[in-house]
Amino acid sequence: MTTASASASGPVPGHGGRGASGPATVTATDLSLRFGGTRALDGVSLRLSHGVTGLLGPNGAGKTTLLRVLATAVPPDGGRFTALGHDPGTPSGRLALRRTLGYLPQNPGFHPDFTAFDFVDYVAILKELTDRTARLGEVRRVLEAVDLSEVRGKRLKRLSGGMRQRVALAAALVGDPGFLVLDEPTVGLDPEQRMRFRELIAQAGEGRTVLLSTHQTEDVAMLCHRVVVLARGRVRFEGAPAELTARAAGRVWSSAERDPNALAGWRTGMGAFRNVGDPPKGADLVEPTLEDGYLLVLDGDDAAVGA
């Protein structure tokens, strides 16, 4: 199967088939959403299961919109989805889903005067944990889980960006949600903070359904058992990371000069050019990476056809 045959609402490689692990916990069918004249989501269908699924896509691909729809922040114009057996199209289903949802938005807002503990406590109240003793215990638990117990009394404005992201993750983990939606949580973090965050997300993915939006193909390669590529509001690929990497098999080559026919080419640290695209005859093929596969899928349906 190729992405050429994948219509806006139709199947894409790996969809619900090979590479899928475990039964589907979240199923979306033909989701669409329009803002003014822009189709932010254009017939998105996907299936998620337990573990971490990566959502890759360029800026403006519709990643944040898709996450907002799945997190029940915005209702879709068309299509439907169910998550953990709940249908958010009904008020009772939406409430039931929200009770088992953890959401880390792209820009988690903070009340600057709140401490880390205050903020997580506030989110715990929004999650209906009104019993003080149980709530305080839960806040302690999630702050420990993200290794922030030591700074719980510090005001958020005095914490580093990485620590604030961990506070936001702790807030998302309140109530032990079964479905965790994380919108670019590693953006702006230094490599060490990113590694620490990856560990936390990997832990969070044990026994849960986690959807992780990211620009970093490394995040997907290291964390995810599934990956969805979104571009212009449509799913361009859905499958295992290894399948996405395999898309670039035989399509990455090394040369002394940049190949003008290559889809993308750049000089590596070793001095040679790494080219991605349709290789010329006799090209010096090299091992592809997940990023190469991602670039080829993003090139559009035509590039994906040739894979």
């Binding site: 807002g109 989110v123 929004l126 209906e128």
Partner: peptide, 10 residues
């Protein structure tokens, strides 16, 4: 924190 409040069950 409006976006977090919107998706909360409260």
């Amino acid at each position: 924190t409006y976006e977090m409040a919107v998706v909360a069950p409260l």
